[in-house]
Computed example of a mutant assay.
Amino acid sequence: MTSGNFRWARLIVSIVLFSMLAACALPRSGPNKAEIYASSVQNQGDAFVVSVNDRVTRATAVQPALGFADEFRDAGMIGSDTINAGDRLGLTVWENVDDGLLSSGPVKQTILQEVQVDGTGFIFVPYAGRIRAAGNTPEALRRIITAKLEEQTPDPQVEVRRIAGDGSTVSVSGSVGAQGIYPIEAPTRTLSAMIARAGGIAIEPEIAQITLIRGGQRSKVWFQDLFRYPEFDVALRGGDRILIEADTRAFTVLGATGGQSRVTFNTQSLSVVEALAQVGGLSTNAADPSGVFVLRNEPQEIANQVLGRADLVGDQRMVYVLDLTAPTGLFLARDFAIRDADTIYVTEAPFTQWSKIVGALTGSLAAVGSVGTSASTLQGDF
């Protein structure tokens, strides 16, 4: 075979390889801008593609609203000495006679070390009978017992002591310094005070959420809001359960970025700029800064507002487009809020795909040249 034939063979092989590269999809991180726009509702697709502007930013700036229900906020403070079912009391009775109802001989004092308040709120005192203790203060209960005993012994003196009880307790669990069951006492009658009693939170305050469960009701609030809004520092009730846990919201980042992963929120609110910064920003070698997309299932109320419509029903697939190269692009990305389950996708620059084609083609031509050289060597040998 002559050298001219080999040159023609190389040219033909090159054309064939180039055609194959053009026809085949080269490796890439996802769809390009044209393909995303082609999937829009305007092009018979199933997603609305919307360019982000100030109006869109305001319409989509919705963050989870956390706060205690009125039932929690309107509950009054329990008195520090109020007796509750399950509490334990200490009683001492002095009688002004030698042979009393409860005492005899020279000892005129009777001590009842621990009297349990039963589940219905009553206690039993000898000769005074069954007395309701729950809801009373120790002083009020003292007067009630004294009045009962006066009917049978002259001028009795009664002392009632409230021992730290089992009834007025709350449980604190989750990300706290010391999980456990704690009594409601004078210094720990509010939510923030009880959390401090349990050693404080063990996670970043920015992402800490407090859930308060009372009977069949539950409400959740941001930890920092306990101090921003005094009405959220609610009064506690016996049997309350307090759960401290980290924010579970997360978003996903794909495409030409510093890292592709599922990322949890590290603040209560998060913008596109902050979200991209968490994964190392855009890839300087591959990203197209004019093709930053946020994919989201938007509730119908917000979708109608964004699109200026009123006929959409149910959640809508929305693709928000950010062009960071525009004069206000970075400002819009700084103001556009990311929400739970969002997907941020950054397209590759056209140059990146061209570089891949050139690289693949150059490698293929080198392989063809190697084959041609080998063929020439073999021809010379023969």
Rank of each mutant, 00 (worst) to 15 (best):
T137H: 02
V107C: 03
T57R: 03
I78V: 07
I123Q: 02
V158E: 00
G363F: 01
L89S: 02
R296N: 05
W8H: 14
A341P: 03
N304Y: 00
I302G: 09
E159M: 01
T252A: 09
S3W: 10
G30K: 09
Q316G: 12
C24T: 12
R130H: 09
A275D: 00
L330V: 09
A147Y: 03
G86L: 03
L212V: 14
V170N: 14
S261M: 13
F227M: 11
F351H: 07
T264Y: 10
V263D: 01
F122K: 11
T190D: 15
N53L: 04
I12E: 03
Q42H: 08
I181W: 04
A61F: 14
T347E: 12
V319G: 10
I338V: 11
G4Q: 14
T267R: 08
A198T: 06
A34I: 04
N43V: 15
T362V: 04
E35N: 01
S271C: 08
V16H: 02
I181D: 06
Y345T: 11
P289V: 10
L282C: 03
D323L: 06
D166S: 15
T82I: 14
Q217S: 15
P31N: 07
I144M: 03
G174Y: 10
Q316Y: 12
G45T: 03
V292M: 06
S51W: 00
P187G: 01
V371I: 11
P299W: 11
A147E: 04
V273R: 00
A133R: 01
G259W: 08
L270Q: 08
L89H: 00
T284A: 14
S19E: 05
Q116V: 13
Q300K: 13
L26P: 00
T110S: 08
R143A: 11
I201A: 07
G329N: 05
P230W: 10
F293L: 08
F331E: 05
V172S: 06
R142Q: 14
D240A: 04
A186P: 06
D342N: 12
R262H: 05
R73L: 01
Q379V: 08
I184W: 04
G67L: 07
L282A: 05
I207T: 15
G165F: 06
E35V: 02
Q116G: 04
G135A: 09
F336W: 08
I244V: 13
P156A: 09
E245W: 04
D87Y: 01
A337R: 09
S171D: 09
F351P: 00
L149E: 01
A360V: 06
A140S: 05
I242S: 07
G291H: 01
E204N: 13
A9M: 15
Q152I: 08
P183R: 10
T257D: 05
Q44N: 15
V170C: 12
Q113V: 02
E206R: 11
I78Y: 05
A61N: 15
A366D: 09
E139R: 01
D99P: 01
E151M: 10
A326M: 05
R237I: 00
F68A: 12
A286H: 02
Q42K: 13
D323S: 11
K33H: 08
T211V: 09
N5S: 08
I338Q: 00
V306T: 05
I131A: 06
Q116S: 12
Q217V: 07
G314F: 03
S104N: 13
T328H: 12
I12N: 06
A202H: 05
E151C: 06
R28N: 13
R237H: 11
G329K: 02
V313K: 13
I145S: 02
T120R: 10
D247R: 06
V160K: 00
